[in-house]
């Protein structure tokens, strides 16, 4: 059996998720043994147009990126969105909350009008092309990443949790941060990170995106119970939830 060819591409992002892959240490060698990495700007100079699996990091922010991703899609059998920027638009979507011209001025100052700094509304990958699998998180969870890759190489659909972060948080025996006055998004955000943030005492800020069917009614109810306002909750949901359905509800 010939090894599946994998290509890794990045769009608008901080490359933090690729760094997680580089940081796999021993497992990185296992990974490289199991597959044939044909393109990966972060780690090698070769380029290739032939691959079975394309792993895409980052969100789509410019019209030319849309074209590039469409080409990649047409070449790949399996397309995987890697990290929050790719799966849900990530932090990049924050700018959708503001006037684009202002964003550019703020980021680039006077040079904002130069054509290569063209910017459009940020899109998650699946707003542009069909995405086969999503590896959530900002950054991704290394364990989950390797599990998903192994599953796909074995030809099985990986089990990606449908349930929220609270499940993993409780299974770890963490005290709930709401009791300490933190507005934690755990109950409405998809699990899979092992409740990374609450386990270290930080509220979940939602980097893995919402569960399929978040109960926004309940969220409104509890903020009242904890003496907060809906605006507070909304502002907490913005960092990763910008322009997603439940944030606006």
């Amino acid at each position: 059996m010939s090894k599946p060819r994998i290509a890794i591409f990045d769009f608008a992002c901080c490359e933090g998720c690729q760094l997680q892959i580089v940081n796999l240490e021993e497992e990185l060698l296992d990974l490289i043994d199991a597959v044939d990495v044909v393109e990966w700007r972060e780690a090698m100079s070769e380029q290739s147009h032939e691959y079975d699996i394309a792993i895409i990091e980052g969100s789509i922010t410019r019209p030319e990126d849309e074209k590039r991703i469409e080409v990649i899609r047409s070449r790949a059998k399996i397309l995987i969105a890697l990290g929050a920027c790719a799966t849900i638009g990530g932090v990049n979507k924050l700018k959708n909350n503001f006037d684009l011209a202002d964003v550019k001025k703020c980021v680039y100052g006077k040079s904002a009008d130069m054509p290569h700094l063209d910017t459009a509304l940020t899109k998650a990958l699946d707003e542009v092309v069909k995405v086969d699998y999503k590896i959530h998180g900002c950054p991704i969870d290394r364990k989950e990443f390797t599990y998903i890759v192994r599953s796909l190489l074995m030809g099985k659909t990986p089990d990606i949790p449908l349930y929220p972060v609270c499940v993993e948080c409780k299974a770890k025996g963490n005290p709930c941060l709401w009791d300490e006055g933190q507005v934690c998004l755990g109950p409405i955000i998809r699990a899979g990170c092992g409740a990374r943030c609450p386990s270290f005492g930080f509220r979940c800020f939602g980097c893995r995106g919402y569960v399929d069917n978040p109960n926004v009614n309940a969220a409104k109810d509890i903020i009242e119970k904890y003496g907060l306002t809906t605006d507070v909750l909304k502002s907490k949901m913005l960092l990763f939830g910008s322009m997603q359905e439940p944030t606006n509800a």
Partner: peptide
């Protein structure tokens, strides 16, 4: 159930 998150906390604990 109107305000249930389906978060499973009640099961887990």
């Amino acid at each position: 159930a109107k305000t249930c998150f389906s978060c499973g906390s009640c099961n887990q604990v």
